[in-house]
Design a binder for these strands. Structure first.
Lengths: 196, 196, 196, 196
DNA sequence: TATGAATGAGAATTCATTCAT
DNA sequence: TATGAATGAATTCTCATTCAT
């Protein structure tokens, strides 16, 4: 099986791509397995050769998508950057991902309702990892005298908040804005506050 | 009809309370009308004496809840406070609401997927109002020399982000924290930044 | 209780009038008890003080209406008329009734489906009576040398047929025609045939 | 798929046959989709693979049945027959159809109440066609000097009436009679009248 | 391995009927 | 006697899943 650019794409992959498309367009409950099959260009029954159930397909779709998102953030470069630059990169990366995959971001970050326990547990672990990463960033920055000895959780809230907010505004306002510019402004505000 | 604490509660109110309970526990699609009826302690058919459809019940539940939330924020006092104090109150108010009504907050702020067009429009108007409120706050604060002449949108993103973030963390971590303390710390960070 | 022209109308009567109105407008299955109650200007529960069930109300409505119809036909005068004049009167009477109470006629003559066994039996007896009446008319006419010694059933078919046909055409075509004229033409056709 | 006599019958056809059976036994409103499915020997959901809704199934059933009926009448032979012979054929054909498919005839000719607008329109067109056919028959017969220059509508009423009457009597009396004999007698009565 | 026709559990909604007031 | 709020049985339709080919 070949896709358009000639790269071999196996059927499992094709189904997952279709799942992203349909789940994000319709939401979990309104997505029909038949539409996913059609989108993947295969028969309805074939889905069940690769995935046990709608739920399992959703889970795997989320995991795959998270990994894509995650990869876009933890570019090794981050480890070589100082705190301010790291924050700027994180904001920019998140914004770019959210912009490209608006609806996926929604499902990924907020559709926790329909996740089953297994997937929720998986998500919790991923978030813990993120938290630890930020924790290390903050510690290093405090030690390096870059920032005030601030509670790691505080930074996590602020960063996480920005991240969610950006997505929400993206969705709501269909906002056109330059990722670089936004990242710059937000980073400055976070670093220096808004008090005159 | 009396509820536990002896206050008279009419049936429409009782159904709305049950709807909050069930919709937030299960999400719109997995909520069954029968469970809402049972929760309200009434028969299935009685629901339809008070609400035309599942969708309409959901809409009214959202609107009622938003109004409760909204009232908890726009305490008149806000208008007499300076910018820093206002931010502190908003964060505290939101956090308190989110803590008490965790799941409701989720539905309220993020479950836009299942809302019908009428409700979406209603929500958009409410958010515009919020935006205008913050806009005024920022303008006054800039004029008063309290803060840098910063883009109103930036403040909206930061505040909105914090608000979302707080909720998310609340949900995920089942976090125990004092609203006042959190509000203080976040306000300080927002005002003065985190740079040493 | 008084109706418009000041005649006392008891509640039972009022309900039956409302039943005619609603059953003929909606058909048995689409008629709601509530609408009948509203039309009668009484409460829903009150219906059940006077009639045991929807079915029973329908039955009584049919019986009452049939009697009205029946009275409009068996005017004593008929017994004093000769055969040709009788036929003319029957056709005219039926046409007039059908014209005034189009939809009731439909229910009365053709909605046998929803009748329960008791009512069907009642209708069968009424039709037998009609049949007997015609039988007598034919016998007398044959004896009097007015018509050929024709099978009574044949006349019954022809007359019954005309009766149904008139109603159907009334319904379908919303036909405007003078009862007297139609009766004259049909009677002539029946009596003398259409052969040149 | 084979039916009892070994003829291949596709499932759509089987469902339509079951629909005739159940709709005519119970009437539209009392027919349950589940019973139709059981009668067709298939699962409830399968109905909806072939028909969109109960209403659509009913419509198609009516149309199919009318076409069967129609075919039984407009045998090409009719066009070669004179007026008297044509009438005889029409009466005989209708009687035979009504005898075989009593209840279907009822639904077909009289259950207009539950038809939706689309189907009603379809029926109106079919009836117009019939009317035109009779119109032509009468015109030709008048021109040929076979019958008096009688109003076409009159013949339509008489023929249509007989047709309805035959069905009604069929239903009510469970009459056993020979189609040929009945057709002969009625034709004679129509042609020559019953006056001595 | 791939398919899609067949299935039936499940959910929203309606409305005749009951019954407390 | 009159009422209408409350009820739940009954019915249509959807769609994830199965399985014969």
């Amino acid at each position: 099986m070949k896709d358009i650019i000639g790269k071999t794409v196996n059927k499992r992959e094709r189904i997952l791509m279709a799942a992203v498309e349909v789940f994000t367009r319709r939401g979990y409950n309104n997505a029909r397995m038949e539409e996913i099959a059609e989108t993947a260009g295969i028969g309805k029954g074939t889905l069940y050769e690769y995935f046990d159930s709608k739920m399992q397909l959703f889970n795997e779709m989320i995991i795959k998508s998270w990994e894509e998102y995650s990869n876009s953030l933890t570019a090794d470069s981050i480890h070589e950057l100082n705190f301010e630059e790291s924050i700027r990169e994180i904001i920019k990366g998140h914004f770019t991902f959210s912009k490209e995959k608006k609806k996926l971001a929604r499902v990924l970050f907020w559709d926790t309702e329909i996740m089953d326990e297994e997937l929720k547990e998986w998500m919790r672990r991923r978030r813990k990892e993120q938290e630890k990463l930020i924790d290390q960033m903050v510690s290093r920055a405090v030690d390096a005298g870059e920032i005030k000895p601030v509670d790691k959780m505080l930074v996590y809230i602020i960063l996480g908040g920005l991240v969610g907010s950006i997505w929400a505004i993206n969705i709501m306002n269909n906002w056109e804005i330059d990722p670089q510019e936004l990242a710059d402004q937000l980073t400055e505000a976070v670093m220096d506050g808004i008090r005159k």
